[in-house]
Design a binder for these strands. Structure first.
Length: 1039
RNA sequence: AGGCCCGUAGCUCAGUGGUAGAGCACUACCUUGACACGGUAGGGGUCGUCGGUUCGAUACCGACCGGGCCUACCA
């Protein structure tokens, strides 16, 4: 790249300037190549589900490409020998139809006009012209595919594999040819497998009844049908053997009213439900799957009356030559003329349609090739039972198993031209010779007049071999030895049966081992309303349009962030916009860093960039900058390591959304919102040691974030990496982020995380007071006291004081150590957090009533919260049966809440007092009363507040010296205040103002209140609590 | 008919047997020397309903109601 020397960034991220360059760079460097000879590094391989060669990229492809690329890049950076193998599928029917359509349009010709050979030449031409399009589209997304290994299912190599498999299966008796009933598409003119039949919602149809006269004229039997035209092919009427109504006529014959044929009434318990219709069923063995079985059970004639074109055959007598639907109307009319119509009832029915053309399918008798599937399915079931292949999300295991355990033989022949022609040859006598290459003579009679079977194989037949056919099978290749079995099969759950199951069966059978260790099934992408995207609905989002507009990184990140397990993705543009903003944010964070890294070289002296992000390792090991680090630096370093740990854990569990959310939160809300703001103090300041420490920390956090993010946002991270690397002259860093080590999991400095909690809490508290008291940020707060800190916290707060000043726009806050609270002073707002208390003097500007209201609100929440905990603690069952640590936690929390309440109420008491003093503003009384003050005791608050503020005056004077004396006074005062408060606030507020609550609501009230409070100090809470939560989760997982 | 998934803030969705979360949207304020694709603060939730298990259920179990998907089949 020529960007090596660039050390500045434009004001905003322009993806178009960046994306085009890097893909070529990676490819040219050979980063995408999987090394089949490298057995030292562990291998990690994925085969890309081959898109249809005719296809154009849609969001499903984009999702697949994104998730697989995330895995590949992550693994590559983590030291694996990665292979991601691309290719395309010839997509038999789909491609043939497209070319036929084109042919019809441009030359008004059918494939039959051209003949097989010429038609195939046209399809190949089409493939050459458009087949590379989808690959190029994958490149636009950044997919790190090994293009040197690109394959096509009709390549010579893969075709050879197909023939090999077919022949071997035939030799083993697992491929056979037979005349059976199959699903036939009259439009596509081909047989289909069960899976290609689409059973859509039941459609409104009708159930028509007619009578078959008994052959001897002694009566009739009424049958009901949804397909009257098939009655021409009826060869029996079936009734239930136990049905008393028909017992007498079982075994007798009926006469066909249109053809005069006679056939029997049979008793069949499997087919007939006596409750349904008339309890008598017409039987058409040649055109209905159930009837086919009945025919076999009773030795009935199979009379085909519908042809491959969907028209009635000559055997259909009076309706011969008619289209099947026309024949339906005609048959009804004819029978009605004979007085045999017995009425019509509306009826819901499900109709099988062709997956491709949507045409209603016709069950037809024909000779087709089949795979005897059960012997192949058994080992594939066992492999999953034994965990040799695992499904994620797990529930798909059931789906797979259910289908595999009830599998039917696979019809693999298709009456198409585009595909692998079946390697079977027939002589004039009809002997079949199956061979890898065209045989010279019939294997049975030696005849040399051979004709190859005209049919081709189901597209999915070659797809089933994809994981090993693409690696050179049937030869024993280094690629196979290195990369088979593949590590992960990542695809949509809509093709579990079509593809995943069949790869399992073929892989196990021919390779002796499963084709992949893990099957990760991603959700389906839908539009923002949850509807399937389709061209006819016009709700298709073109990934490339999105890429153009928002950038490939934004799209990729969006898709990853929405990929939760077990739920479809509803893609809304707002979401993509949000992640484009994220790329921009990252860009600007880097821009900030670059603007403040002058003179900084990392590492110094250069050292290799370790995989670890830990402050004790990596590029900042031995960094002299460590000397000047502050609590803020240590905090972000700890948070960085935690982000690394959580991201890696999420990736390992295929929780793409969690991984994305973790990095997002870290970059935006910790690195940008907090650390960059914190670092400004040092970066803009005069202290060279401090500045250097901040620079080193910033570089480390940023370089780690970029690497964490690279698999998700390859382009912007690569760009930023190159610029950052140049800026800090980090020659030891790889010059491509894709070649850099992924940050490694390591221990988190929890002390640094926890210790910083008060700083964040204090800043939040002051900002909160500003917000609620309507004091804009630009107004400098001159009178701020921070107290109730333990010794350690006080140390940290002192150390970070300059940063607190900057973040909250405060001048010279006073810090009290050793638990001493801030003074109780009028015209102040007070916030109490975990382990700290802040008083903000608001000069004359404080709205006492508003502050009282704010405090009252706060106390109300505390009360509710405390109430629920106290009730819990008062319950002997809870204390006895709950785990001791839970009880202990609640006790501690109750204490904390009580303490907090005490402090707030002391403040409130003092403030209430000022209201009664001459200076109080009369206009505020009303709102004060709304806050449930007790007007009947006007004197006491005043007394209390005087006591409190009087005592506080004393404290205030000693606070600047940290001392035991201060602590003693503080404690004494606090308890004095609490005593006073007891008198002022006669009873707990019962939140009685609100209208009578329902019994149910009472339960919810504390929670609601608690939540609000929790939300208020969310930053502090997040910082402080996360370690505990994570630890617990980790423990659980190990179980 | 059977199976699976889902129902949590206005929307799209995480999550958890012990203090309900994110993004977007919304409200107020702020162009502060990375970023208005920005910042700060705020409002907003009987976690579908009813039972059960439990000291404690949004989470586990059952039933039901709503939505979706899959498989099989209904003459």
């Amino acid at each position: 790249m020529n960007d090596q020397d660039r050390t500045e960034l434009a004001k905003g991220y322009e993806h178009k300037d960046v994306e085009a360059r890097w893909y070529r760079f990676w490819k040219a460097r050979g980063y995408f190549h999987g090394d089949e000879h490298d057995r030292a590094r562990p291998a990690f391989s994925i085969v890309l589900p081959p898109p249809n060669v005719t296809g154009s990229l849609h969001l499903g492809h984009a999702l697949t490409a994104t998730l697989q690329d995330v895995l590949i890049r992550w693994k590559k950076m983590s030291g694996f020998n990665t292979l991601w193998l691309p290719g395309t599928d010839h997509a038999g029917i789909a491609t043939q139809m497209i070319v036929e359509k084109e042919l019809k349009k441009t030359e008004k010709a059918s494939r039959h006009d051209l003949g097989r050979e010429e038609f195939l030449r046209r399809v190949w031409a089409w493939k050459e012209r458009y087949g590379s399009r989808i690959g190029e589209q994958h490149q636009a997304l950044g997919a790190a595919l090994d293009w040197d290994r690109e394959r096509f299912t009709m390549d010579e190599g893969l075709s050879r594999a197909v023939r090999e498999v077919f022949v071997r299966l035939h030799e083993e008796g697992l491929v056979y040819r037979e005349k059976k009933l199959i699903n036939w598409c009259p439009d596509c003119h081909t047989a289909l497998s069960d899976l290609e039949v689409e059973q859509k919602d039941a459609e409104q149809g009708e159930l028509w009844s007619f009578a078959y006269p008994l052959a001897d004229g002694s009566g009739e039997i009424v049958v009901a049908t949804t397909r009257p035209e098939t009655m021409l092919g009826d060869t029996a009427v079936a009734v239930h053997p136990d049905d008393g109504r028909y017992r007498a006529i079982v075994g007798r014959n009926v006469r066909h009213p249109l053809t005069g044929r006679e056939f029997p009434v049979v008793a069949d318990a499997i087919l007939v439900d006596p409750e349904f219709g008339t309890g008598a069923v017409k039987v058409t063995p040649a055109h209905d799957f159930n009837d086919f079985e009945v025919g076999k059970r009773h030795g009935l004639e199979q009379l085909a009356v519908i042809g491959p074109d969907g028209r009635m055959t000559a055997a259909a007598g009076p309706v011969a030559g008619l289209d099947r639907f026309e024949a339906r109307r005609r048959v009804k009319a004819l029978l009605a003329e004979q007085g045999l119509d017995r009425g019509t009832k509306p009826h819901l029915l499900a109709i099988g349609r062709c997956q491709r053309s949507g045409t209603i399918l016709e069950p037809l008798l024909s000779d087709q090739w089949y795979v005897r599937i059960e012997p192949l399915a058994r080992p594939a079931i066992e492999a999953v039972e034994q965990g040799r292949t695992r499904f994620i999300p797990e529930q798909w295991t059931n789906t797979y198993m259910a289908w595999m355990r009830n599998i039917h033989d696979w019809c693999i022949s298709r009456q198409l031209w585009w595909g692998h022609q079946i390697p079977a040859w027939y002589c004039a006598d009809g002997h079949v010779t199956v061979a890898r290459e065209a045989p010279a003579a019939c294997g049975t009679c030696g005849s040399t007049a051979l004709r190859q079977d005209e049919d081709v194989l189901d597209t999915w037949f070659s797809s089933a071999l994809w994981p090993f056919s693409t690696m050179g099978w049937p030869d024993d290749t280094p690629t196979l030895r290195t990369f088979y079995p593949t590590s992960v099969m990542e695809t949509g759950h809509d093709i579990i049966f079509f593809w995943v199951a069949r790869m399992m069966m073929m892989g196990i059978h021919f390779m002796g081992e499963v084709p992949f260790r893990i099957v990760y099934l991603h959700p389906m992408v839908r539009d923002e309303k949850g509807q399937k995207m389709s061209k006819t609905k016009g709700n298709v989002i073109d990934p490339l349009v999105i890429t153009e507009q928002y950038g490939a990184d934004a799209l990729r990140f969006t898709l990853a962030a929405l990929t939760a397990q077990g739920r479809d993705i509803k893609l809304a543009k707002e979401r993509i916009e949000g992640y484009r903003a994220f790329a921009n944010k990252l860009w600007n964070a880097s821009r900030f860093a670059l603007m403040n890294l002058d003179g900084f070289e990392s590492p110094h002296p250069p050292a290799p960039l370790s995989g670890s992000a830990g402050p004790e390792r990596g590029e900042i090991r031995g960094d002299p900058a460590a000397e000047g680090r502050t609590a803020a630096d240590r905090w972000i370093l700890a948070r960085t390591q935690r982000a690394v740990n959580e991201t890696v854990a999420a990736l390992e569990a295929f929780r793409f959304n969690e991984a994305a959310a973790t990095v997002y939160h870290f970059v935006w809300h910790e690195l940008c919102d907090w650390y960059i703001e914190l670092a400004k103090e040092a970066l803009y300041g005069d202290d060279a040691g401090r500045r250097r420490a901040a620079q080193g920390t910033l570089v480390h956090a940023l370089a780690t974030a970029l690497r964490l993010l690279h698999p998700f946002m390859p382009f912007v991270t690569e760009e930023l990496w190159s610029v950052l690397r140049a800026k800090v002259k980090a020659d030891a860093w790889p010059d491509a982020i894709l070649a850099a080590p992924y940050p490694a999991v390591g221990p988190v400095d929890e002390g640094a995380e926890r210790g910083f909690g008060p700083v964040i809490g204090i800043v939040d508290a002051i900002r909160n007071i500003r917000g609620e008291m309507n004091v804009p940020f630009k107004v400098v707060l001159e009178d701020v006291e921070i107290g109730s800190l333990d010794r350690e916290a006080a140390g940290t707060v002192r150390e970070e004081l300059a940063r607190i000043h900057r973040l909250a726009n405060v001048r010279d806050a006073v810090v009290h150590a050793d638990g001493a609270p801030p003074a109780r002073r009028p015209a102040s707002a007070v916030a109490v957090g975990a382990g700290f208390e802040v008083r903000v003097g608001l000069a004359g500007a404080v709205d006492v009533a508003a502050e009282l209201a704010r405090i009252a609100k706060e106390v109300e929440k505390l009360e509710a919260d405390l109430g629920s905990i106290e009730r819990k603690l008062a319950n002997p069952n809870f204390v006895q049966k709950a785990p001791p640590e839970v009880v202990e936690k609640d006790r501690a929390r109750a204490d904390e809440l009580r303490e907090k309440r005490g402090k707030l109420e002391a403040h409130r008491a003092m403030l209430s007092g000022t209201l009664d003093s001459p200076g109080a503003r009369p206009g505020r009384r009303e709102s004060m009363e709304n806050e449930n003050q007790n007007p009947s005791q006007p004197a006491q608050p005043s007394q209390a507040s005087q006591a409190a503020s009087g005592a506080m005056e004393t404290v205030e004077k000693v606070v600047t010296t940290v001392s035991e004396v201060g602590k003693a006074i503080g404690t004494a005062v606090a308890s004095g205040v609490e005593a006073a408060v007891e008198k002022v606030m006669p009873k707990r507020k019962k939140v009685a103002r609100k209208p009578a609550r329902k019994a149910k609501a009472r339960k919810a009230a504390p929670r609601r209140a608690a939540k609000k409070k929790a939300g208020k100090k969310k930053a502090a809470k997040k910082t402080a609590r996360r370690p505990a939560r994570r630890a617990k989760r980790g423990a659980k997982k190990r179980r």
